[in-house]
Design a protein around this nucleic acid. Structure first.
Length: 199
DNA sequence: CAGTGGATGCTCT
DNA sequence: GAGCATCCACTGT
């Protein structure tokens, strides 16, 4: 971890997120997300834009969506089904209220800590879902609005040798705008929340 | 492997 | 009061 922790200059910053949310969601595949001692490679994301019935910001500015309407490069964390904290990255210029849902990681660091939180289970079940990965990393609602470019968050770009292929499909678990192909995944990864992305 | 239903709490109508 | 950007256990192949 120490080498990543000192690579401050290569962190993803607000400029990375200040672009099309769909492009950001695609380019996050293969990037590395750390939170404290734990982290891994992002292998699945979904994008949500403001003119999108499935996006929380669709109804406008409310107390819950305040962070969504704020500047890019911050964490939007909310409670799903009364149980799970779901982690999103705010994207697009401030006020556009778009975000990327982080759906799955391939764990690389702090696997023992993850198992302590998630229970004894195979690596492929530690972070293969949006609720699972927040539990594994120990992220909760207290991180809503947190700056992603400072500790305990650490976001690093794809390594130079990265040769992954990004595949797309329909988003998961929503009832509105189901047809929009805004789910992105790393081809062949066993850590994705459902075995295959079905376009 | 596929389908079903319960847990659980907050937001918005 | 309805509806969730989910997960897990359980059922029946």
């Amino acid at each position: 971890m120490s080498s990543e922790g000192t690579a401050t200059e290569s962190r993803l910053t607000a400029e990375f997120f200040d672009r099309s949310v769909h492009l950001v969601a695609r380019e996050l595949i293969g990037c590395r997300l750390f939170y404290g001692d734990c982290g891994g490679v992002i292998v699945e994301t979904e994008s949500y834009e403001r003119d999108d019935p499935a996006c929380h910001a669709y109804v406008g500015l409310t107390e819950r969506t305040e962070v969504l309407f704020g500047p890019p490069g911050r964490a939007y964390v909310y409670l799903s089904y009364g149980i799970h904290s779901l982690l999103n990255f705010v994207a697009e210029p401030e006020g556009e209220a778009a975000a990327v849902l982080i759906r799955a990681l391939a764990p690389t660091s702090g696997v023992e800590s993850m198992r302590a939180r998630r229970g004894e289970r195979p690596d492929r079940d530690l972070c293969s879902g949006p609720g699972k990965l927040t539990e594994a990393l120990g992220i909760d609602l207290s991180q809503n609005g947190a700056d992603l470019s400072t500790d305990p968050f650490l976001l690093l770009p794809r390594g130079d040798g990265w040769r992954g292929q990004v595949i797309t499909g329909r988003r998961v678990g929503i009832t509105k705008a189901v047809e929009r192909p805004w789910r992105f995944g790393l081809a062949g990864s066993p850590h994705i929340s459902k075995p295959a992305i079905r376009p």
